[in-house]
């Protein structure tokens, strides 16, 4: 019983990261019907920035309060970095293809994903101490353990809750609530939802759709940047292929929750995190991917619109 609870807790914590990345997929898809394959790799680049900054600021050996302030700065920098890159890619790559067949931006997104991966590979080879001194560009990079993972319930306790878990869950929840308030309460957020539901009508309401799209890429990117720092702090390892693996799970989460649906992405992320944990415990670690994707297939057969998805969106 305690083991089950422990696995649920681990799954929940992991799921938060998937959910944060999934939000970026789902928001862009909602507006452009574009699966932004580069999103996972954007997340990876942000994680490299996070590690670089942690190294430059010397946070690994700093004292508690400095670490807190430093990390807030790193979060901010990574969010801005990823947001700007995401928007720039939209401006330069996707926007000229706005009226092209859907396949064109999709293939371009895959191209961007490769460019990002190679940038990550290059970045990993920089002669920085945190990157292993530039010796092995592709090797996994250790992200310093800035938040203690000692058991808050005591060393011998059967259930394990660490400060690290609480930071991941707590800060992710805060960001999600803020995002929710933004899309439901703010003028731009509402315009975003309106554009996602009916871009033509949105234009006729005087909504500058290009601006809304830019804002979507900015926000999705910022979430990926935030997720990257959280991921680094939690998993403590980053590598240039992380974008692929996490992107795949996050994209699955978005589809699972109903692509284009913001709460759906969060639910999908948490479900995947939990299924992953339970599958490791009760089925076997080697079946993890098979179980996750099997679940996706089963869901798509019985509920193609996803867990929270509305029925197929009305066409213009």
């Amino acid at each position: 019983m305690l083991t089950l609870a422990q696995q649920l807790w681990i799954g929940l914590t992991n799921g938060m990261v998937f959910a944060l990345i999934a939000l970026g997929y789902t928001m862009v898809y909602g507006i452009l019907e574009l699966i932004n394959f580069a999103h996972g790799d954007l997340f990876m680049l942000a994680s490299f920035l996070a590690l670089t900054l942690v190294g430059l600021l010397g946070l690994a050996t700093a004292s508690g309060p400095v670490v807190v302030v430093g990390l807030l700065g790193v979060v901010l920098a990574c969010a801005i970095f990823a947001a700007l890159i995401n928007r720039t890619v939209d401006r330069v790559v996707y926007r000229p293809l706005r009226n092209a067949p859907k396949l064109a931006p999709l293939v371009s997104a895959i191209g961007v994903s490769f460019v990002f991966q190679n940038l990550g590979l290059f970045w990993g080879g920089l002669p920085l101490d945190v990157m292993g001194g530039g010796l092995a560009a592709a090797a996994p990079k250790s992200f310093p353990d800035l938040i203690p993972s000692t058991n808050l319930l005591g060393d011998g306790a059967a259930f394990r809750i660490t400060a690290k878990d609480l930071v991941v869950i707590g800060s992710s929840l805060c960001v999600m609530v803020a995002l929710w308030l933004f899309v439901t309460r703010s003028r731009l957020g509402k315009a975003m939802r309106a554009t996602a539901q009916n871009p033509l009508a949105a234009r006729l309401m005087g909504i500058d759709v290009d601006r809304v799209i830019s804002a979507t890429f900015l926000i999705g990117g910022a979430l990926a940047g935030f997720a990257a720092v959280i991921y680094g702090l939690y998993v403590n390892t980053i590598k240039f292929q992380d974008g692929y693996q996490n992107g795949l799970y996050a994209f699955t989460a978005a589809v699972l929750g109903g692509i284009g649906n913001i709460p759906g992405a969060v639910v999908g992320g948490l479900v995947i995190g939990i299924v992953r944990a339970l599958s490791d415990q009760y089925i076997g670690a080697q079946w993890q991917q098979a179980v996750v994707f099997g679940m996706l297939i089963a869901l798509l057969v019985f509920r193609p619109q996803g867990l929270l998805g509305a029925n197929v969106r009305e066409k213009v």
Binding site: R187, N198, A201, M205, E314
Partner: peptide, 19 residues
């Protein structure tokens, strides 16, 4: 009509006043 089907009636009207 092209109303925003998943926005509330009030939100639809707000969108009308977007500018």
């Amino acid at each position: 009509r092209k109303i925003f089907s998943r926005l509330t009636v009030l939100e639809n009207l707000e969108m009308g006043a977007y500018t």
